[in-house]
Nucleic acid binder design. Structure first.
Length: 564
RNA sequence: UGGGGCGUGGCCAAGCGGUAAGGCGCGGGACUUUGGAUCCCGUAUUCGGGGGUUCGAAUCCUCCCGCCCCAACCA
């Protein structure tokens, strides 16, 4: 695996684990796990967790398990299991033979539950869900004990066995741990361990109709697998006393739970509920829509696994709530692609350029560098001719201050080709719109050599006769506001109306004709683009803009005209 | 009003009693056949606030303030 260049920064988890290793706790071994519930797609927030879980194990010579927390059959499916495995692998992590499922432990969990009942530490409760809630009390008032709390052990044992055989309806009974209904920590007010769900499970089928709750399954699963450090997010901090309680009652291997703050990214959302709503509402094309913060979306957008791992390292790991600027993610992918993406010329919004003193019907090829950052990537030949396409943005009839590009009477360099001077324009008589730019070239400037002259601007171009057409999709932030979550009511109003711009009839240099799906390219002066892996076809190329290049000119122009 | 956490520059984040790392962003400059990349320089006299301990505090004590999480038979 390619290691990110960013050096490992200190963080409290690394320190805790290092301390344990030093002290020989857990025999000096490190075993972690990434425990997704297969109920949806992984997003960039999960990527942080994956990098922490696998990263810690890797750093300390340990191992990391992939364990599916599949204890709720009504929300889970093998489709999700597969997409999760695919995504973790894509991100660059390997769990080796350590693929596990909480559902593999159902029998063991059941036996342990019986053990707790026998020890008087758990009981079958007949309260309805509503009653259970009422009895639990509130944040400030203690709960009340269920009238079934002290029923005889034998009776609980019998009832629990019958719950398993399917004798009772959903919601009629639960198995609960007997802890403390007055605890300030609600998790300790006799937490439910099992509920009845007469639903088929994607792995165990109809073998069970009682399913363990997260708290009862998670710690015990960690214990069975010999996990030493069970790393999770902050919202489980309140659950740690319960996690510890179960393990202590059972007297089994006890791993250390450690919590860190989950990732929040600006201009997007990480709430599974809202992401689902976007998908189901057709506001995006699917879970892998390139605007989505899902790893499937980022992947389709052209992000590399290396850039995401680098991002995960750079944001750090701590316990303070955070909102990471999406600009950092964008910086990471730019930095990665700058090193590896081959350069190419593509005109997104074409404007015809005619070189009046260039012979009609003649052509030639100029040599272009594939990647100035990596000479080993070589050069290529690009066809040049009398009629070219240039970018609409690269011509202004009346140039604003500091505009280095083409305008009447001004010289500019056609990248890798010649210096040209604008001699005039052709306009649509009706609209007055410039439909064609006329110019003269300096034959002695072949290759772009300005020969001592100062030519401030260099623009890209594509030979009209050789151009390959394509559709290009320009993406911007999904949400216009940095914190769309602040808009709880009408959060969809915060969606960026221009998050997707589809450009058709874009003109690409011919070398792009056979571009492979998912291949990444830098369109010079514009950004990084990849061939869409879903809809692009040889006969109809479709590119996604992964991220734009830093655009200093846009910044200058924006500050010059604040309104624009 | 209960329990658990967290507060260091615009955003992340080191710091662990010896006098504020680094990254992103932003501003400026150099260089440039991508207004890209690269390279320089600048960007917290101060660590939520007040007291206290100490020769010395972001780090220890204390009080206060603010923010987040918890009342699914979800994870």
């Amino acid at each position: 695996m390619i290691q990110p260049e960013t050096p490992r920064a200190a963080n409290f988890i690394r320190q805790m684990v290092a301390e344990d290793v030093k002290n020989g706790r857990f025999g000096g071994h490190v075993v972690t796990r990434f425990p997704p519930e297969p109920n949806g797609y992984l997003h960039i927030g999960h990527a942080k967790a994956i990098c922490v879980d696998f990263g810690i194990a890797q750093e300390f010579g340990g191992r990391c398990h992939l364990r599916f927390d599949d204890t709720n059959p009504t929300k889970e499916s093998t489709e999700y299991v597969e997409s999760i495995m695919d995504t973790v692998r894509w991100l660059g992590f390997d769990w080796g033979p350590h693929l596990y499922y909480a559902s593999d432990y159902f029998e063991q969990l059941y036996r342990w539950a019986v053990e707790l009942i026998k020890a008087g530490k758990a009981y079958v409760d007949d309260l309805t869900p509503e009653q259970t809630r009422e009895y639990r009390g509130t944040l400030t008032e203690p709960g009340r004990e269920s009238p079934y709390r002290n029923r005889p052990v034998e009776e609980s044992l019998d009832l629990f066995a019958r719950m398993r055989t399917g004798e009772f309806e959903e919601g009629t009974r639960t198995l609960r741990a007997k802890i403390d209904m007055a605890s300030g920590n609600l998790n300790l007010r006799d937490p439910v361990m099992y509920r009845i769900r007469k639903a088929a499970h994607h792995r165990t089928g109809d073998a069970w109709c009682i399913y363990p709750i997260y708290d009862w399954a998670h710690g015990q699963s960690d214990s069975i697998e010999g996990v030493t450090h069970s790393i999770c997010t902050l919202e489980y901090e309140d659950h740690r006393p319960l996690y510890d309680w179960y393990l202590d009652q059972l007297g089994v291997h006890h791993s250390q739970q450690i919590e860190f703050a989950r990732l929040n990214l600006s201009h997007t959302g990480m709430s599974e509920r809202k992401l689902l709503e976007l998908v189901e509402g057709g506001l995006v094309s699917g879970w892998d829509d390139p605007r989505m913060p899902t790893l499937a979306g980022l992947r389709r957008r052209g992000y590399t696994p290396e850039s995401i791992r680098d991002f995960a390292e750079r944001i750090g790991v701590a316990k303070a709530d955070n909102l990471v600027d999406i600009a950092l993610l964008e910086h990471c992918i730019r930095e990665d692609l700058n090193r590896r993406a081959p350069r190419v010329m593509a005109v997104l919004r074409p404007l015809k350029l005619v070189i009046e003193n260039y012979p009609t019907g003649q052509g030639e090829e100029v040599e272009a560098v594939n990647n100035p950052e990596d000479p080993a990537m070589g050069t290529r030949r690009v066809p040049f001719a009398r009629e070219l396409w240039i970018e609409q943005d690269d011509f202004r009839e009346t140039p604003p201050p500091k505009y280095f590009r083409l305008s009447p009477g001004v010289e500019v360099r056609l990248r890798y080709a010649y210096i040209i001077k604008c001699t005039g324009v052709v306009k649509d008589p009706q609209t007055g719109e410039v439909t064609e730019v006329r110019c003269a070239y300096d034959p002695a400037s072949r290759g772009g050599d300005a020969r001592g002259r100062k030519v401030k601007g260099t623009i890209h171009w594509v030979s009209a006769a050789h151009a390959v057409e394509a559709e290009v999709r320009l993406y911007d932030h999904l949400f216009a506001k940095p914190k769309p979550d602040e808009e709880e009511e009408d959060w969809k109003a915060a969606l960026n109306p221009t998050s997707l711009q589809v450009l058709t009839g874009c003109k690409l240099e011919p070398s792009l004709a056979g571009a492979a799906p998912a291949s990444r390219h830098q369109f010079e002066r514009q950004g990084y683009f990849c061939v869409d892996s879903v809809v692009s076809a040889p006969a109809r190329l479709v590119f996604n803009r992964t991220v734009g290049l830093r655009d200093t000119w846009a910044k200058i122009e924006k500050t010059a005209t604040p309104s624009g």
